[in-house]
Nucleic acid binder design. Sequence first.
DNA 1: ACGGGCATGTAAGCGGTTACATGATTCG
DNA 2: CGAATCATGTAACCGCTTACATGCCCGT
Lengths: 181, 181
Amino acid sequence: MSLRYALLGMLANESSSGYDLNRRFQEALYAIWPASHPQIYSELKKLDADALVTFSKEGSRGRKVYTITPKGLKSVQSWLAHSDVDHALRSDSLLRSYFFWIMEPATLQKHLAAEKAFFESRVAQYEQFAAAKDRGDFGSSPQMKSIRITLEAGIRLYKSLAGWAEWASKEIEHPTSSNEQ
Amino acid sequence: MSLRYALLGMLANESSSGYDLNRRFQEALYAIWPASHPQIYSELKKLDADALVTFSKEGSRGRKVYTITPKGLKSVQSWLAHSDVDHALRSDSLLRSYFFWIMEPATLQKHLAAEKAFFESRVAQYEQFAAAKDRGDFGSSPQMKSIRITLEAGIRLYKSLAGWAEWASKEIEHPTSSNEQ
DNA sequence: ACGGGCATGTAAGCGGTTACATGATTCG
DNA sequence: CGAATCATGTAACCGCTTACATGCCCGT
């Protein structure tokens, strides 16, 4: 259900084509809400059927430009204001950690080092973007401020996971468990 | 695909019935990998068809006890050691934050307060469990140590999100953006 | 002229949820 | 005996992915 609102939200910012929405999705939202292009196109079809968006077939190569309708805007606002947040998580990284006891120590250490490196690279990537934003490279529209807030979540999240991977690595090497020995 | 390995991992620890697997899943893994009982039962069927588990219909009320096979054990180990970690994330919380600019300030502040409270309650819940573990309430098997590590990830993750929600709330009230005014 | 990116789709299939269904057993 | 819980499933449906398909336009 969330993809529908993600698309409406992007269209609330500016009208655009399915192709552009997809491109922007891959750049901006894929990290927190993955979606493939067939899904985006078919969801746009449904949004049109529900009169939450309209489109005008105008541009070159059959390009369709979608625009949000007043009903569509109300729909996103209502989602944001009234619907319950889904706090479900689905993390392959954490799931695997539950089964660390099955892994050989050497393999596990390699695994944790790779995880740490991955999380740190995400942090670096987001921090770079955040710094550019804070310098004012992208203006200071309300939209940009929201993006900055989302970015901050990513930075904090991946920083904490990088720290966790490092902690786990040490914890496994020399356990500090109170009931040890 | 991950559910399959989650089940195999649990069965590597101890043989149990679909019912028990489901119950333990809801308690322990639901927070990081949600699964409903029909999914678990049908996955067990497939695992049996693939000879990764066997079952003996023995217990009361048609209870089936599943046991992992050597092939099954190899399968989990191979998953843990050789398959790429899927770092995809799908967070309703973060997705919404991308669209904060659409929300009315008062609603948004309420939203962030509720989010912070939720994240903090998760932290408290996990910390309580972690403390009990560190006291040695559950022994110190390798399995238990893995759980402790997973738990640590949850604590750090939700702590960072709670901090983020607080930061965002303040950031919105009095922006500190460098290119302000 | 043609190769590559633009732009939009369809189809098959899988993973996952929700609702429904059923019988067995234990407990008060 | 009846209610609750144990225990296992089926069916319908939806979200989502992967692979396939098609035509258009731009640059070289």
